[in-house]
């Protein structure tokens, strides 16, 4: 038996196989890291020269081949602001339920968890359809018939924000729940021992101690929401606008949609290429700075509770 094993060990087949099984994972990891580095460098290299003060503060001119992207930045920021106002309270309450109230094995809490997971897996374009079918065609129409107006039953900023807030709900819930669970048990016990009720404990002790976690959730949701294009294509984002949106019923320009339009529907794509790269880099910087901030806050929470 041992002879057989020894023989096998010295055969060239075995040698190649053992080299491959250690070499391939290493190769894959190196390839992956290089690929991502290349991707990042590509956008920094091509995009950096185009980012100037004028680019960030001017409106596009001359068929999107000159000028800047200020309306798109403005629209995106407005959008994610409204989105967080709508989504973060709901996400936080759900996380409070899951962390503080739910009994792990109860049917309801398991269904909530399943709902959150399912929501996280629904393709973003389906949220766009949902935005059209539910927010614009149902709620918007309902408001219009009730209030005798005509402005709500069309794609607009508020419906896009509502759609995105539903889409980013799982992100908020997961982040806030983690933060709530990181609040030490001693604090809850101390508060309860002092005679505080359950809600008083949550409101006065648990939530203030997890404020940074809620912030993380919000930031992550904004990072996700700012980059999503598919849900807003037909729920309010437009190609170009004569003026900035000033009410919730207005349509808006969107960074991601702007990149999509520049890349695919521009009559002279080559002329617009420098601006495309610059817009892409701005979007990337926006997304990454948000993600990095969130990661930093998370790290600090974890360290402080250890």
């Amino acid at each position: 038996m041992s002879e057989l094993l020894l023989q096998k060990k010295h055969s060239s087949y075995y040698y190649v196989k053992s080299k491959l099984s250690t070499g391939l994972p290493l190769f894959a990891a190196i390839f992956l890291v290089l690929l991502i580095a290349l991707l990042l460098l590509h956008f920094i290299w091509h995009g950096a020269p185009g980012i100037t003060w004028a680019f960030l503060t001017e409106a596009p001119r001359n068929n999107n081949t000159e000028g800047g992207i200020f309306p798109a930045i403005y629209g995106t920021v407005f959008l994610v602001f409204i989105m967080s106002l709508l989504g973060v309270p709901i996400g936080t309450a759900t996380a409070i339920y899951l962390s503080e109230y739910a009994r792990q094995q109860s049917f309801f809490s398991r269904s909530v968890r399943f709902g959150v997971n399912t929501l996280a897996g629904v393709p973003s374009i389906v949220f766009g359809l949902f935005g059209v079918g539910f927010f614009v065609q149902f709620i918007g129409k309902g408001i219009d018939t009730a209030a005798q107006t005509t402005i709500w039953s069309k794609p607009s900023l508020i419906w896009a924000a509502a759609t995105l807030s539903v889409l980013t709900l799982p992100v908020v819930i997961v982040a806030v729940e983690e933060a709530l669970r990181n609040v030490p048990q001693d604090l809850r016990e101390a508060s309860l021992a002092l005679g505080a009720t359950k809600w008083q404990t949550i409101w006065r002790v648990v939530l203030p101690n997890s404020l940074t976690g809620i912030l993380t959730g919000t930031i992550l949701a904004i990072g996700r929401g700012a980059g999503e294009v598919a849900p807003v294509i037909f729920v309010g984002a437009v190609y170009s606008l004569p003026q900035l949106p000033d009410s919730l019923a207005d349509q808006f320009m969107h960074m991601g949609y702007h990149i999509y339009v520049l890349a695919t529907q521009s009559p002279n794509a080559a002329d617009a290429l420098p601006l495309q790269y610059a817009s892409t880099l701005v979007l990337l910087i926006l997304a990454f700075s948000l993600n990095l901030t969130a990661a930093y806050i998370r790290l600090r929470i974890r360290r402080s509770h250890k």
């Binding site: 992956l32 890291v33 991502i36 580095a37 991707l39 990042l40 956008f43 990072g223 700012a226 980059g227 999503e228 294009v229 598919a230 991601g256 949609y257 990149i259 999509y260 890349a263 495309q276 892409t280 979007l283 990337l284 997304a287 990454f288 993600n291 990661a295």
Partner: peptide, 15 residues
């Protein structure tokens, strides 16, 4: 690094 890739908006990957 892989998380950086996860942070790429899909429209950027498409571009």
């Amino acid at each position: 690094t892989v998380e950086v890739l996860a942070g790429f908006p899909s429209v950027v990957l498409g571009f």
